[in-house]
Design a protein around this nucleic acid. Structure first.
Lengths: 112, 112
DNA sequence: TATATTTGCAACCAAAAGGTTTCATAATTT
DNA sequence: AAATTATGAAACCTTTTGGTTGCAAATATA
């Protein structure tokens, strides 16, 4: 069973859950109220998030509060950032291309 | 059929493909050589990547070259970055908490 | 103590994902 | 023209996902 941060945040419901608990810890029922799926479904999502370290479940009486561990998103951030240079470089050369095109246009375009 | 960037990068093979074509465009067979799954499987992955805008397929003779459109990862970057404050704030407050704890300890803990 | 609440988890299901083989088609080579 | 190459896509299969209902267990409340 693959269980990494990338797979965890692939599901929109899980991304929403993370958004909810980013501000403050919530117990499972509270989280469930915000969705129209069963508690069991939400529970499963939360387990996946917990298994890959994106949240921690803390028991408090009969409730379990889910606390965000958003720093785990660093993994995603790092992966994405390694490519920023590529796409920004691409835009740079597009920019150059456009400038070049513009100067060509001043000469009234290429003939034929 | 859900088809967004988050779902696209959830698969490790697709992340590898993106890494390969970040530097330079490759045709489908070239990409396939780097994996031990069938061309058809790679083709499917590339279609998914193309459908969500992470790469563009350009025909050139009988070959199709796949060009990275890594700027699409901005979507992921933006989503992650909105939480950076949270986890950095959390570390800050952990820091505060530890300081507070330390000063409490100087008073030899709370009584009863 | 009897009842409510909050949760963990098993059993079961349909759909999606990821893979394969096979065949058709279009462009390149010989 | 014939053979080869590169690809698109259908048909099929197995595993994973995301969801459900139902029940047991633990904690709180009346």
């Amino acid at each position: 069973m693959r269980r990494d941060v990338f797979q965890a945040i692939a599901d929109p419901t899980r991304r929403e859950i993370l958004g909810m608990i980013a501000h403050k810890s919530l117990n499972i029922n509270s989280v469930t109220e915000n969705f129209d799926v069963s508690r069991a479904a939400i529970y499963k999502h939360m387990k996946i998030l917990a298994e890959c370290g994106l949240l921690e479940i803390k028991q408090q009486g009969r409730e379990r509060f889910c606390e965000g561990r958003l720093e785990k998103l660093n993994e995603v951030s790092d992966w994405v950032e390694q490519y920023r240079q590529f796409w920004e470089a691409r835009f740079d050369s597009l920019d150059n291309y456009l400038k070049e095109l513009q100067s060509k246009n001043k000469k009234h375009g290429r003939k034929k």
